[in-house]
Amino acid sequence: MIRLKSLTKIFPGQATPAVDQLSLEVPAGQTCVLIGPSGCGKTTTLKMINRLVEPTGGRIVVGGEDVTGMDPVALRRRMGYVIQQIGLFPHMTIAENIATVPRLVGWPAARIAARVDEMLTLVGMDPAIHRTRYPRELSGGQRQRVGVARALAGDPPVMLMDEPFGAIDPITRGRLQNEFLKILKAIRKTVVFVTHDVDEAIKMGDRIAILRDGRLVQYGTPDEILARPANAFVEEFVGTDRALKRLALVTVREVMRTDTHASPPRPCASIPEDATVKEALSAILALNGESLAVVDQEGRLLGHVTLRQIQELVAGRSDPIP
């Protein structure tokens, strides 16, 4: 668990605080997304958690321990850190880059080598090809993936990620987001994740913290924030298509009707069960249809989602959550 209490940072010579009385709690095993306009203090907040920046005031408690009393080196080795500018080591191979923390903490060589390959595979890069390459021989997107692999390599319980998927094309980004969510499902980690992208925040966050000028404007689950923006700033920030975005929070499996098994309304296209309702809606509209068959990985029919159903869902959900 990570708890920030009235965390404040005033950089020397600056009139206004970069981070101002920020208090929030990230429960263990959850992902907290920090989002807000450029310069609102996201990076500064992240760097205070691993003590790259010393707070001017307030407290940071990680796993019940006040961070200020801890040895920063030991603290950082337990926190995977992906910096905004990636920061790969130019003189080391990709394998050596990824092996950084395992080497620091003294894993045996065989375990490190296996871990490097595992991490490369995880981020969708062929170990045989990329292991011995150098950072400058990679594309920007590949470097970013190596940055994520490097942060994950030591299997830290906490991950601090500063726009980790910023320089990646939408398709790869989507894949990496899914991969990362899968990793988190398998090994629970407490994650603080910085992004500029509302859709990414909604997808990745158990909770979203919206910052403005160093202050916390709203902190809540994606659904809470989409359903009840705290003020006009949040409303504008999350976008006018809030209703649509909320549909991205639900998978078709959760809403599909299974009572139509025997007689589907009409022969229709299919969608995988883990697709979001937003994707289902988009597919229905694109096909100019009425409904979609929901199928599992093997293509077996599980149920249906219909346009009517989605409309009802939106209508039902646009009411404020009690």
């Binding site: 760097k47 691993n50 790259l52 080196v73 030991a74 603290l75 950082r76 080795r77 850190y81 910096i83 500018q85 990636i86 920061g87 790969l88 080591f89 130019p90 950084t100 923390v101 620091l104 940055g147 490097r150 942060a151 030591g154």
Partner: peptide
């Protein structure tokens, strides 16, 4: 590269 140094420090060197 200060970013390389920052990530090195950030990883616990």
């Amino acid at each position: 590269d200060p970013d390389a140094v920052e990530s090195a420090v950030g990883m616990g060197m």
